[in-house]
């Protein structure tokens, strides 16, 4: 039982980690980023490349990959997405445009990865050593990813609720029009939130590459997982993201242990659909209409 709970928490932490960047991109910058998973895999590849080619410890690699993720995302938002934001008259229009544009972006990032690394599976071993916690054996690399997910989630949550920049980000998330009225530069704030999301997804990619097998085509799996966590937790809400991720992870490992591993994903989706039926805006979301 304790083992199932521990495993579930760690898996849930990973889900939350995967989803945090998207909740900022979708919730604040209003970009439904379908190429999200591709960026995650790209970060995993760069970590692989740094580790196998340059013997650089992935945790140190974070110091390179995270700023790169931030920079690339900022550039992307400035160059590719700002015209769409300017052109969109309604939120719905921007959503449609961003779905279409990021769908194209997904192909581009995937195409680049395919030409650089080919289609094969990649995996490496780093910190895959057992640690004993309360008498249960856990993998150190997963434990680190879990710890960082919780730490980053709480830190960002505090930053969003306690700082001035955080408050303006939340204001944009709630109502971009009204935010303008109180002298918030909506475009700049959105760009910052999008880039922050990019930095988070880069971090997630590096961390999960320590224990998951990935290939150039596996991005879409992560996009989907992230979308489900984001919507279930409430779009734009980091705490919701953490709670939803943990709930999904826990349900998965409890079902695998006590019911049938074959039903884990079915239960995951059922839980997600159930939450939406009871609370259409997600666990921590505000009703939108």
């Amino acid at each position: 039982m304790t083992n199932a709970i521990f495993t579930g928490l760690m898996l849930g932490g990973m889900y939350a980690l995967i989803a945090m960047g998207l909740t900022l991109q979708y919730g604040v910058a209003r970009i439904m980023n379908l190429s999200y998973g591709e960026f995650l895999v790209a970060a995993a590849f760069s970590s692989y490349w740094l580790f196998t080619g340059w013997a650089l410890n992935p945790l140190l690699g974070l110091a390179l990959v995270i700023p790169a993720g931030f920079g690339v995302s900022l550039l992307l938002y400035r160059v590719l997405l700002t015209p769409l934001v300017r052109r969109a008259r309604t939120r719905g229009a921007l959503e449609v445009d961003s779905i279409l544009a990021t769908f194209g972006m997904m192909f581009i990032v995937q195409g680049i990865m395919l030409s650089m690394f080919g289609g094969a599976y990649f995996s490496y071993s780093f910190l895959a050593i057992p640690v004993s916690l309360f008498g249960e054996i856990l993998a150190l690399n997963r434990l680190i990813a879990f710890g960082l997910a919780v730490a980053v989630g709480l830190a960002l949550y505090l930053a969003l609720t306690r700082t001035r920049l955080g408050t303006s980000i939340r204001a944009v998330a709630v109502d971009p029009m009204a935010a303008q009225l109180v002298a918030i530069d909506v475009v700049r704030t959105s760009a910052f939130a999008f880039a922050l999301g990019g930095a988070l997804v880069a971090a997630a990619g590096v961390l999960i590459s320590m224990f998951l097998t990935f290939s150039a085509s596996s991005g879409v799996i992560f996009t989907m997982k992230a979308l489900i966590v984001v919507v279930m937790g409430g779009v734009g809400n980091l705490l919701g993201c953490l709670v939803a991720g943990l709930a999904l992870g826990l349900s998965e490992s409890l079902v695998a242990t006590f019911v049938d591993p074959g039903l884990t994903l079915a239960v995951n989706f059922a839980l997600f659909l159930g939450v939406l039926l009871v609370k259409p805006a997600g666990l921590f979301g505000r009703a939108q209409r």
Binding site: L84, A101, I108
Partner: peptide
């Protein structure tokens, strides 16, 4: 894949 992505972006814009 790569070309499809580029063409897609062009269409959207």
């Amino acid at each position: 894949t790569l070309i499809m992505g580029v063409i897609f972006l062009l269409i959207v814009y």
